[in-house]
Amino acid sequence: MISLGLTSEAALFNIRNNCPYIVWAAAVPGGGRRLNRGETWTINVSPGTKAARIWARTGCNFDGAGRGRCQTGDCGGVLQCQGYGQPPNTLAEYALNQWNNLDFFDISLVDGFNVPMEFSPTSAGCSRGIRCTADINGQCPSQLRASGGCNNPCTVFKTDQYCCNSGNCVPTNFSRFFKDRCPDAYSYPKDDQTSTFTCPGGTNYKVVFCA
């Protein structure tokens, strides 16, 4: 068996709700948790995890069995998410212990925006965090407005120009709306150069809603 030199320690993600309203935090892997204002939820994520997400759901109503619906970010009508959320939702995305034993992390608006967010490392001497705290919902273009959030144009128009299905798309006026307000966040699928950040494998992180 070939060793890739991966760290064997789980990464800790501390998820905090600073919003003046309830959010139902969601994580894949991780599940879900109701967070009142000021409450936190910590999850342990295995090294080597890829294509992982954390996001906030709003306007939720769940029964005692954990079934219900959310206005934004709903993940199949369950409290304990097994799959990704329904747009619009601000996403904290990450992959742990990848190339060169680095973690890769970003905030993505490719699924739109629902809640302001900070996504920052908290250990390993890694200090460069990301914030997307603009009033995107309040300033959302009329074509992209949704209940409780602001859709990305791909969700609305479903064209290659906005969705990048061919892999050859460029920024648009709609993607620039997001980029101007959150320069560190992904605004369209090919927005890699200014939107992906790295830390050494084994770093811990925090995700703060309404930072």
Rank of each mutant, 00 (worst) to 15 (best):
S108P: 02
C132Q: 01
Q143E: 15
G138P: 08
C70L: 00
A134L: 07
N151T: 13
Q161K: 15
S108Y: 02
I54Q: 02
Q82T: 14
G73Q: 02
R33N: 15
A11H: 13
G59Y: 07
P141W: 02
R181V: 08
T49P: 05
S108K: 00
N61E: 14
N61H: 06
R34Q: 15
C210F: 06
N168K: 13
Q161G: 09
A25R: 02
S166F: 05
V208K: 10
Q193D: 13
F177T: 06
F13I: 15
G66T: 06
V23R: 01
S3V: 01
C199G: 01
Q80D: 14
R69I: 07
G125I: 03
S195I: 05
S166M: 08
P183L: 11
N165K: 13
D184R: 10
P20F: 04
N204G: 07
S147I: 10
N61Q: 12
V45P: 00
N204P: 03
F62I: 04
C164T: 08
S120T: 11
L12Q: 15
T7S: 13
A92G: 10
N89C: 11
K179G: 02
G66I: 05
A134F: 02
G66P: 07
R145C: 07
G68A: 06
D135L: 11
P183V: 12
I43F: 01
N165V: 10
T194P: 00
P47I: 01
S187C: 01
V28D: 09
N61K: 09
S123H: 12
I43G: 04
S142M: 13
N101Y: 01
F119L: 07
T49N: 04
C75V: 05
V207I: 15
G31K: 03
T42M: 09
V115K: 06
G66Y: 06
D111L: 14
Q139N: 15
R57P: 03
V115E: 02
D74R: 01
T58N: 09
F104M: 13
P121N: 12
F62N: 05
R181Y: 10
